[in-house]
Design a protein around this nucleic acid. Structure first.
Length: 288
DNA sequence: AACCCGGGGCG
DNA sequence: CGCCCAGGGTT
C-alpha cells in the first residue's frame, strides 16, 4: 500500500476541476478544456481563464460554432495559442465524430487534435474514472527520484507509462487517486528546484533521498531564450491582432519598429501558416 | 531524438 | 536573469 492516496486526500489543493460541482456542470468537456489549458501553463494562471471559457462555451458543439477569431481572443495571454486552435478543432471533431460527446476510449481521444499521451489518459481517468497511467512532468520527476534515485527525470518516454502502469493500484477508483496524487506530490512537495522532503509521504522509501539527494547530473533540455526569439515576435503580432479585433491592421502598420523586420515578417508568415492569422493582401486580421 | 511553440512568475 | 510550468506536433 502506497501512502500517496492517504496523503493526497489529506492535503490536496482545492482546484476547480477537482470539485464534484465542476464535473456535474461541465462533465468531461470541462476536464478536456482544463487539460488543454494546463499544457505548459501553470495552474494559477489557468483557473480564471477556464471558468470564463466554459461559461462561454459549455459544450463541444457550442464551441464548434465559434470562429477562430473568437477562440484566439478568448485564449488571451495563456501562451502557445496553437493550443486554442487545436482545442477548437477537437471540439469540431467531437461534434462530428462523436455526436458532441467527449470520447472515453484512449485511442479515440488520441485521435483528436492537440491530444497526446498525457491529455488522452488524463481525460479517461479524471473525467471517466477509468484505469490508465497518467504521466505528466510532475509524475516523471517523482518516479525519477522515488524509484530511480535520480535528481531529475530523463526526456519523456513511453517507458514512463509502463513504469507508472506497474505502480497503479488494482482498484479503479484508487488508481485514479494514485495518478492525481503523484502529480500533486510533484507539484507541491517533490518540486524541481527545492524539494521539501521533510513533508514527503514517500520519504521513508525514496531512493533519491536514501542516497543523500545526490546531483545525478541529469541535464534538463534548456528552452531557447525568449527575448529576441521568433516566439516573442509571433506573440507580439498576435497581441496586436487581439487588441484591434474585429478590425484589421494594415500590413505596414504591423510592428513597424520591430528591431528585426525580417523576423517580424517571418512571424507574420508563420502565424498565417498556422491558421492564427489571415491576410487579404493589404491587411492582417484574426480569421473569421 | 531534437526542435519549435508564449508568457509570466518565482528564487 | 535563469528556470520552470498537468505537452503536443513536426521533422
Amino acid at each position: 500500500m502506497s501512502p500517496l492516496p492517504t496523503w493526497y486526500r489529506a492535503t490536496a489543493r482545492d482546484l476547480p476541476w477537482r470539485r464534484p460541482s465542476f464535473h456535474d456542470e461541465f462533465g468531461a468537456w470541462g476536464v478536456l478544456v482544463s487539460e488543454f489549458m494546463l499544457q505548459q501553463t501553470p495552474v494559477t494562471r489557468v483557473i480564471p481563464h477556464l471558468e470564463a471559457w466554459l461559461e462561454r462555451w459549455p459544450t463541444p458543439s457550442e464551441m464548434a460554432t465559434a470562429s477562430t477569431a473568437d477562440v484566439v481572443q478568448q485564449w488571451a495571454n495563456l501562451g502557445y495559442p496553437r493550443r486554442a486552435l487545436w482545442l477548437h478543432r477537437a471540439a469540431v471533431e467531437i461534434t462530428e465524430r462523436h455526436g458532441g460527446i467527449v470520447p472515453r476510449e484512449v485511442d479515440a481521444l488520441l485521435a483528436l487534435s492537440g491530444i497526446g499521451d498525457y491529455t488522452a489518459r488524463a481525460v479517461a481517468v479524471f473525467a471517466y474514472g477509468d484505469r490508465h497511467p497518467v504521466v505528466d512532468t510532475n509524475t516523471r520527476r517523482v518516479l525519477a527520484r522515488a524509484i530511480e534515485g535520480r535528481a531529475q527525470p530523463g526526456p519523456p518516454s513511453r517507458r514512463d507509462l509502463v513504469l507508472m502502469a506497474d505502480l497503479l493500484p488494482d482498484d479503479v477508483a484508487e488508481a485514479a487517486v494514485f495518478n492525481a496524487a503523484a502529480m500533486e506530490l510533484g507539484a507541491t512537495v517533490c518540486t524541481s528546484r527545492a524539494p521539501r522532503c521533510e513533508l514527503c509521504p514517500l520519504a521513508g522509501s525514496c531512493a533519491w533521498l536514501a542516497a543523500g539527494r545526490p546531483d545525478t547530473g541529469d541535464e534538463r533540455r534548456r528552452q531557447a531564450a525568449y527575448e529576441g526569439s521568433d516566439r516573442q515576435a509571433r506573440g507580439a503580432v498576435l497581441k496586436l491582432l487581439r487588441s484591434i479585433d474585429p478590425d484589421a491592421v494594415p500590413l505596414d502598420a504591423v510592428l513597424p519598429d520591430w528591431p528585426d523586420p525580417g523576423q517580424r515578417d517571418r512571424a507574420i508568415d508563420s502565424l498565417i501558416a498556422d491558421g492564427l492569422a489571415e491576410a487579404d493582401g493589404a491587411s492582417l486580421f484574426l480569421p473569421r
